[in-house]
Each structure stands twice: as structure tokens, then as C-alpha cells.
């Protein structure tokens, strides 16, 4: 019952968003019914398509986990994009840079190096917040732009294959690849394992308790002897780590190399997914699959129903709009509940 009750708001949000999206599709002169059946067909009908959906869901799960974990610590990480990108790039560099390693070492090594890069990139805003009081929302966004520039420079000047006209890293070694079993990508299973791990960390460990305490009431947490600075930095680093894993899997399991621009919008999707999951790490999995199904079927929607693929952006934005406003909660429960975390606190002051 409890699960149903808390799932009600996201489900209603999705339904409302789809209805509003249908209206837009109708207005743009196409048939919503055709579009939505193409959406379903393109993502879930047939093992191959289902596999693609899971593949697309993988970085989304990690991006959603990154945002959700930071949320629990009272931090709004909009920098998933940059952290993911660094993870993907470093994993790519490690994937082709190391040669002669067995798969059992090379793949995890590349994965972890990518994650570490994401963690380092995520820790920067954490440190800036803890020591200088700079609000993470602005710093993480600025770091997204810096990361895009820095990655482009690294791809152009450092890791580009001689003679390649495109800005990208060389293909990774076979020993660094994350394989796909049948139609189920191993990367997806890794992401699911991380979702479970994050849940365990938050709910069962003393560290998770500290993170949640700082997120819900930082002053009371520090009165109880918890070092809020340490928690803020660690929370951001872990959040970046999770995003970095997402980028690594994308490079090692899907693309086989790093190319700039592959992840446009992934960071923002993480916010939608985390809010849709109401910051519950387990619920991040179905939320990510839902968003991934739209991305996976956008081209089929265009082909079959003639709808511009950007419609999925609009529907995702609508989902976020409905899920992030307490309006539905009020309508259905006549009371205030949901997140108690306030990101506005400490805005602009240390």
C-alpha cells in the first residue's frame, strides 16, 4: 500500500504529461494515438528494441542516482552532465591507453578511472560549497561548460588519433569493453547493482544516516557533531562518482570511444528521473527506463506518426513540471508531504 501510495504522484504526473503531449501532437497536425503506439512499439516490442531501451536507460539510471543521492544530502547537483562527460572521456582514454591487460582487470580499471574522474569533478563544487559557501547550482552548471571545453581540448590535443578528422578518442581495446549478453547489456546490470548499493548506503549505514541528517537539517546535524563540510564534499564526490560510472559505461559498453556531444541533455534528464523517483534509488530504475523508452522510440515516432523527435523533450519537461510541483500532492492527499529538503537555504551565504 505504502509503495502504491508513493508511486501514485509520479504515475499521475506521467499520465498528465502524456495527455498534455497528446494535445501538442494533435495541434501540430499528427495523431497522438499513432505517436504513442509508435512510442510503445519502438521501445518495448521485441527483444532487440527492449535491449536498446535498457542500453539507453543505463546512463540515465546513473545520472538519476547521482542527482537523487545529492538530493538526499540536501544538494542539487545540476553538474551530472560534466561529471558524466569526464567519466566517459577518461574511461575512453584508459580503454585505449592501456594495452595487453586481461579483461578482468582492464574493464573494471577503465570503469573505475572514469568514475574517479567524475568524482573529482563532482568534488570541486562540494569543496567550493563547504569552504566558500558558493551555491552548487551555479558552480555545477558553470563546470558543465568548463568540462565541455576541457574535454574538447583533451580530445583535440592529447588523445586524438593521428589522421582522424573528427574530434574523438581512438577506439578502446577489446579488453576494456563491457559486453552485452544476448540483448541484455551488462552495463545495465551494473547500473541496477549501483542503485541497490546506493539504497543500502543511504538506509543502512551510519554514513548514509549522516548524509540524510545533513540533507534534512544541517544545523541540527552539526549540533549533533556531524561535520557538515565533510558530508557536503563527500556527497558531491559520490554523486559525481555515480555520474562518472554512467559516462564510463556509455563509452565502454555502447560507443566504444569518446565523442563530444554524445550526452547532450543527459544531465538534465537525471533531474527529471530523480524527481520522478522521488529520490528513491530503487525507483530510479523504472523512471530511467521510462525516459529511455521515449528516447529510444523518438525516431520511430517521427517515422510512423510524423512527430518531431523533440516532442520527447517536451513530454519529459512536462513530467518534471508535474512531478516537481506539489500541486498533485495537494490535490490527492490534501496535505503537504514529499521532500522536506530546501535548496534555497544557504543561498548566496556561507
Amino acid at each position: 500500500m505504502k509503495i502504491l501510495r508513493s508511486a501514485l504522484v509520479p504515475i499521475i504526473a506521467v499520465v498528465l504529461a502524456l495527455l498534455a503531449g497528446a494535445l501538442l501532437i494533435q495541434l501540430s497536425g499528427s495523431s497522438p494515438l499513432e505517436a504513442y503506439s509508435a512510442l510503445f512499439e519502438g521501445s518495448f516490442v521485441g527483444w532487440e528494441r527492449f535491449g536498446t531501451t535498457l542500453e539507453k536507460a543505463t546512463p540515465l539510471i546513473m545520472g538519476g542516482l547521482a542527482v537523487a543521492f545529492a538530493f538526499k544530502g540536501g544538494l542539487f547537483n545540476i553538474g551530472g552532465q560534466g561529471q558524466l562527460l569526464f567519466g566517459a572521456l577518461i574511461a575512453g582514454a584508459a580503454g585505449y591507453g592501456f594495452t595487453g591487460l586481461p579483461w578482468i582487470i582492464h574493464m573494471p580499471l577503465a570503469l573505475l578511472l572514469g568514475a574517479a574522474a567524475g568524482a573529482a569533478w563532482g568534488a570541486i563544487p562540494g569543496v567550493l560549497k563547504a569552504t566558500r559557501g558558493a551555491h552548487e547550482v551555479i558552480t555545477t552548471i558553470m563546470l558543465n561548460f568548463v568540462a565541455a571545453n576541457a574535454a574538447e581540448w583533451l580530445c583535440t590535443k592529447v588523445w586524438r588519433k593521428p589522421g582522424d578528422i573528427l574530434v574523438r578518442t581512438p577506439m578502446i581495446e577489446g579488453s576494456a569493453e563491457i559486453p552485452t549478453f544476448g540483448n541484455i547489456p551488462l552495463g545495465f546490470l551494473i547500473a541496477v547493482a549501483f542503485a541497490l548499493g546506493v539504497w543500502y548506503l543511504l538506509q543502512k549505514t551510519t554514513f548514509g544516516f549522516e548524509v540524510r541528517s545533513v540533507g534534512l537539517n544541517p544545523s541540527a546535524a552539526s549540533y549533533a557533531g556531524i561535520s557538515t563540510k565533510r558530508i557536503v564534499i563527500l556527497t558531491m564526490a559520490i554523486s559525481g562518482f555515480l555520474a562518472g560510472i554512467g559516462g564510463s559505461i556509455e563509452t565502454l559498453g555502447v560507443l566504444g570511444r569518446y565523442e563530444p556531444g554524445f550526452n547532450a541533455g543527459l544531465g538534465f534528464d537525471g533531474i527529471t528521473i530523480a524527481l520522478l523517483a522521488r529520490t528513491n534509488p530503487i525507483a530510479v530504475i523504472p523512471s530511467a527506463v521510462l525516459i529511455a523508452s521515449m528516447d529510444a522510440s523518438a525516431s520511430l515516432m517521427q517515422f510512423k506518426a510524423g512527430v518531431a523527435p523533440e516532442i520527447t523533450d517536451v513530454i519529459e519537461a512536462l513530467i518534471l513540471l508535474f512531478v516537481a510541483t506539489p500541486i498533485i500532492v495537494r490535490w490527492f492527499f490534501k496535505s503537504r508531504q514529499g521532500e522536506e529538503i530546501s535548496f534555497g537555504a544557504n543561498w548566496g551565504s556561507s
Partner: peptide, 17 residues
């Protein structure tokens, strides 16, 4: 609603639309 989330919603919404 939370002001930061509300603003983020506007941003993503504007980008999508």
C-alpha cells in the same frame, strides 16, 4: 514549491519547448 526546483523546471521546460 521549492524555489530552486521551480526555476530548474522552467529552464528544462523552456529548452524542451
Amino acid at each position: 514549491g521549492d524555489q530552486i526546483i521551480a526555476g530548474t523546471v522552467l529552464n528544462i521546460f523552456a529548452l524542451g519547448l
